[in-house]
């Protein structure tokens, strides 16, 4: 009949031999081995078996040609530097897998900073529109052009520069009432050729 203590400690013998037990368990097994002949014999048998396997493996390994082992392993490894997008993909996947919270928080913070900076820095109004109304300064007919120019204005402050043939009848000339329709155009210069204002 099997010794109950032997039965209890038997599964631990292999782990004891491999040094995988904790200090407390190890002490218990050692104490048991000192008093149990069966277990001590089984441990010896296990050690012999292990030694036999190790020797057999070493002999088998010696028969193998290991000269190309390192180069074959290296050949199967990925290249030293992956393409940019592949590295980026790996980085993103790893970041979102292991540090999702931090990544999202960082992204939100950065986005917030960027948005506020953009809003703060962008010009409030397009440049060059300091004046409230458009204002014509000069209208010049180019050399050789037999034209008069007429400027009219609308209530909304739009300015219209018309071309009139210099030979046009009187009625085609400027109509003073047209110029009175809107706010002053702010003409600072005069037409340099033709074109009554």
């Amino acid at each position: 009949m099997e010794n109950p203590a032997h039965k209890k400690f038997r599964p631990l013998l292999s782990a004891f031999m491999d040094g995988e037990l904790g200090p407390r368990e190890r002490r218990l097994v050692e104490r048991h081995l000192a008093s149990c002949k069966e277990s001590a014999q089984e441990l010896e048998a296990l050690q012999a078996l292990s030694e036999g396997i190790r020797t057999a493996m070493e002999e088998a390994a010696e028969e193998e040609d290991w000269s190309t082992f390192a180069s074959e392993v290296l050949a199967q490894l990925p290249p030293e530097k992956l393409p940019f997008f592949q590295r980026l993909k790996i980085q993103l996947v790893e970041s979102f897998t292991y540090q999702r919270g931090w990544v999202l928080a960082g992204a939100c913070a950065l986005l917030l900073v960027c948005l506020s900076t953009y809003i703060w820095m962008r010009p409030a109004e397009p440049v060059g529109y300091g004046s409230p109304h458009l204002s014509i300064q000069t209208v010049t007919a180019k050399a050789g052009a037999s034209l008069k120019t007429i400027i009219t204005q609308t209530e909304s402050g739009d300015a219209v520069v018309w071309l009139v043939e210099e030979t046009a009848p009187e009625g085609e000339g400027v109509s003073p009432e047209l110029l009175e329709e809107g706010p002053p155009l702010g003409l600072e210069g005069r037409q340099e050729k033709g074109g009554a204002l």
Binding site: Y129, S135, A159, V161
Partner: peptide, 29 residues
């Protein structure tokens, strides 16, 4: 100058110099 832009529009037969304004469109024949 002083955020007021002066533009020169050169057409085949005329040249117009004007200051931009927040309101007002310039129509040139």
């Amino acid at each position: 100058k002083d955020d007021i832009a002066t533009l020169v529009v050169s057409l085949p037969s005329t040249e117009t110099t004007y200051q931009l304004g927040r309101t007002g469109t310039l129509y040139l024949q």
